[in-house]
Design a protein around this nucleic acid. Structure first.
Lengths: 243, 243
DNA sequence: GGCGGCGATTGGACTAGACAATTTCGGATG
DNA sequence: CATCCGAAATTGTCTAGTCCAATCGCCGCC
């Protein structure tokens, strides 16, 4: 078997021809179907296993394939769209009709780093809450979140949080604070071994990193959150309007 | 030399230890400084070149390093934040005090695919404009954009575009149409050989793909655009408010 | 009929090395 | 002194192979 020719206006590495071959196969199959094994592809296409694996790795990173050690490689489910709104995770999930839950990994008091202090308008070294949570949708991990809030402004927050899933609800009911606006930053990253373990993916996998800096009605900063989403599973949707 | 030990709560591939070692080096240097060569790292850390290259490739993808064949590997400039607003590219660039320009790659009439037809509320096969442009900031390529608009609604658009940089200005001045809202989708992708060539990066490099679906004041769809940004260079910033 | 073990299969991690393409820089040459 | 050339250094691409880890299915045994 040979790889179909392609106009080479732009230089193409050999692994990319393997990738195109795989994309054609993927196009004819439905999610969950197996694609040929690495060793079969390498024999059929006359390449080394390394080259085949590079093509496969890129397709996995793009969310087109899923690999399972000892089993095989399969066509992946399409990405899930996730809305970016000024509402809590719990509400967002309910709005899309999915079962959302949250696992509290860690809630502790820290001293503010320079970066946290600047964002929360505090002095460096001021006491802050650092809350790490895993967001789950339909019992599969979706995102890892680290929130920072002033410990002076929100005393006893950790205790309240252990009794409630929703940080926004605690802020409203216990402290009378409602975030009304936020500046959100979106960028690419790659999974650390720890993130990969918690998000049930591989070290180095593409990640969409969101950073949310939210404010209450008085313009006072409320929290600073960073979230790590699997880039192969999710895409974000936001609404823009002329001001 | 040996790589510093790390608590192994989470299994860590060997290449990741090399990556941490490099991150420490990067932390002590300023942008533009060279980091050790592949062969030096492989001798110092007692690993194969493949393993060293995997760590380097990940750091390049994260925008921490830049590699130049024949020359060496260098610490990269920090990422640039790019605002997502309901304004034209040209205006956005001016607002941040940068020199923006646009290179028209292709402007042709097509027949609408099913996807384009649905988004522009046309019949499949209806005539549409397909406009491909390269966006440059300070003379370096920033994004590749493909816009689709109804050819029936905007006759002679291609001709007007060749005389103006700004599509939004042409729409307003020639057709009296002003997009006022849009739904924007953000996801990760990887560069095809063609995209890599035009964006001056490598095949397979991480890409932030934006898809903008914009509407005029009557709620009529105006255009559907897909843009490819280098994920190692840019991050997006958007503002959220409670409705 | 069900359970357990074992071996084949598959993907995961890493090594060693060949050759190509590009850049850099010093030395020979005019 | 300026310019060109070529060797050395560096990254880019690909091959061939080893060993490991997880999975799956078959077969024998209870």
């Amino acid at each position: 078997m040979s790889i179909p020719e392609q106009p080479r206006d732009f230089r193409e590495p050999k692994y990319y021809a393997v990738k195109r071959h795989l994309l054609e196969i993927i196009g004819t199959l439905s999610p969950g179907s197996p694609v040929p094994t690495e060793r079969l592809l390498m024999a059929q296409l006359g390449t080394s296993r390394t080259t085949v694996r590079q093509a496969l790795a890129e397709l996995v990173g793009e969310g087109r394939l899923v690999r399972r050690q000892g089993s095989g490689t399969y066509v992946a489910e399409p990405k899930v769209s996730w809305p970016l709104r000024m509402t809590s995770f719990t509400e967002q999930a309910n709005a899309t009709g999915r079962a959302a839950s949250t696992e509290l990994i860690d809630a502790r008091r820290d001293r503010a780093t320079d970066e946290i202090a600047e964002r929360l308008r505090l002095q460096p070294g001021a006491p802050v809450h650092s809350i790490e949570r895993l967001r789950l949708v339909d019992d599969t991990p979706m995102a890892l979140e680290t929130s920072h809030l002033s410990a002076t402004r929100f005393p006893g927050l950790a205790k309240h949080l252990r009794r409630s899933d929703s940080l926004y609800r605690v802020l409203r009911d216990e402290y009378g604070v409602v975030p009304v606006s936020a500046e959100e930053t979106i960028e690419t990253a790659s999974a650390t071994p720890r993130e990969a373990e918690l998000l049930n993916t591989e070290t180095g996998a593409p990640i969409l990193m969101l950073s949310r800096h939210s404010f209450d009605a008085d313009g006072e900063p409320v929290e600073w959150v960073r979230s790590w989403y699997r880039g192969d599973r999710y895409r974000f949707v936001t609404r823009l309007t002329t001001d």
